[in-house]
Every structure is written in structure tokens, then in C-alpha cells.
Amino acid sequence: MDFDKEYFNLGFLDTLSYKDTVIHRLDPRTKVIATFALIITVVSFPKYEITGLIPFFLFPAMIFSLGDIPVWFILKKVMVVSVFAVFIGIFNPLFDTHVRLDLFGIPVSGGWVSFFSILMKFFLTMCSALLLISTTSFPGICHALQKLRIPEIFISQLLFLYRYIFVLVEETLRMVRARDLRSFGKKGRGISIFVNLIGTLFIRTIERADRIYHAMLSRGFSGTIYYVKRDRLRKADFVCLFLTGMVLILFRTYDLVSFIGKQTERIF
């Protein structure tokens, strides 16, 4: 069943983030900052850039191998969302028709170049975001954001979301199963039943929220959620941040791929 499958996917992503590798052991703050820096750098390239973006693929490649993350799993996720990027760029080839470069004798219009550039940027940013959540536990990311001065209320929201998404999805799963087991063929799968299902789920959620709030009050909750500090930035984190920064600047300022291309051209 589709619903079950999606749920196990979510669970798998979560399980990945609790592995123990070099990447997983880095402080969440390091990873959040590095990912953010990478995304900003990639997005800052001009719209016809292609060669300059190529070296950045080294980042996801490195994390895939060091973090022991299954490549296909992440790529499939990126594919699913890629529809949005395609829609953003799909009209470029129609509007921007002047020839910008010559590929082995075939003239390529500026529209195609910028379309391709959008796809590359999309792939890089999506990939790094997904890699961040598959190499860092969700609570870890939230604590990192908290230390980077993101307002408390967003952090609590995210943490509760993470805590209860699994509970809620399981509850929905049970309801969907109960419906499917008693609906033979098409009857019982109609929209009206679906609406009822959502309604019931909504009411159950409110009741649960009430019970959770009660549990919080019973343990002295009075408006603010406190956390115990942990995670110290270690030497490895500073080294990693420094190297990432340097490499990003290098890749951003020098078009390495063109440079290597020109050098090889000169030799032969």
C-alpha cells in the first residue's frame, strides 16, 4: 500500500540519521552552517553558469561515501521534487533563443543553458538539504538552530512535529487499514469516507494535544521548554568548517573545470 510505503521511507530517512560515521559525529551546528554556506554559494552563480557548478558535485559525492548514505534513496527523493525546478525553467528555451555556445557544431540557445543551470543548482541544493537530514538527527538540527539564535517557538514547533509525526502517521495508517479491510472493491473508498476519516483524525489530534498538555503541566511546565546543553564543538568541527569555507571560496572564484579544460587543450 502506498501509504505504508511512504511511512517506511520516512522512517528510513530517520534511521539513517542515527548512524555512526565521521560525518554523523560532526557537531550539528557545523553541518547546518556548512550546508547553508554551500547552498548560498551555489545559488549565487550567474544564470548561464555551468562549468563553475561542476566542482560542487564533489560535496554530495564526499558525504554520500563518508556518511555511508544509499545514493539511490536520496536521488529518488530529489527526482520527486524536481518537477518544481523543471516548471521554473521549462520556458527559458522558448523565450531566450539567441545562441550562446557551440557544442560540437550544434548551436545551443541561452535558454537551454540557463535551464540546465537551474537544474544543476536545484540538484545541488536539494541534495545537500537531504544529506543534512540524513546525516544529522532531527533533534540535533533543532538544537543547532536554537544555538544559532532561531526563535524558541519555531524550535518547539519543529521538535513536536518530529515527535508526533510518527505517532500520527501510525494512527492514520491504522485507520486506513481498518477502512480497506472492510471496504470491498470500490465502495468505502470514496471521497465522503475519506472526509470522515480526516475529520476523525482531526478530533483525535485535538484530544491527544489535550492529553499531552496535561502531561506537560503535570511535570511543571509553565511556558518555556528548557533543554540540557550538550554537544561541544571539537577540533574536527573547526577544521571541517574552515576547509569547507576555503573550498567554497576557491570553487566560487575560480572556474576550475574551464581551467583544466584549457590546460589539456594546450598540451595536446
Binding site: P139, L159, M216, F221, Y227, V228
Partner: peptide
């Protein structure tokens, strides 16, 4: 209701 066991026990 907290994200990890430790946080939950520390809540009170």
C-alpha cells in the same frame, strides 16, 4: 513528548 529520552526525563 520530547524528541529524545534524555530530554524527556530532564523536562521535569
Amino acid at each position: 513528548f520530547m524528541p529524545t529520552v534524555y530530554d524527556d526525563v530532564a523536562f521535569g
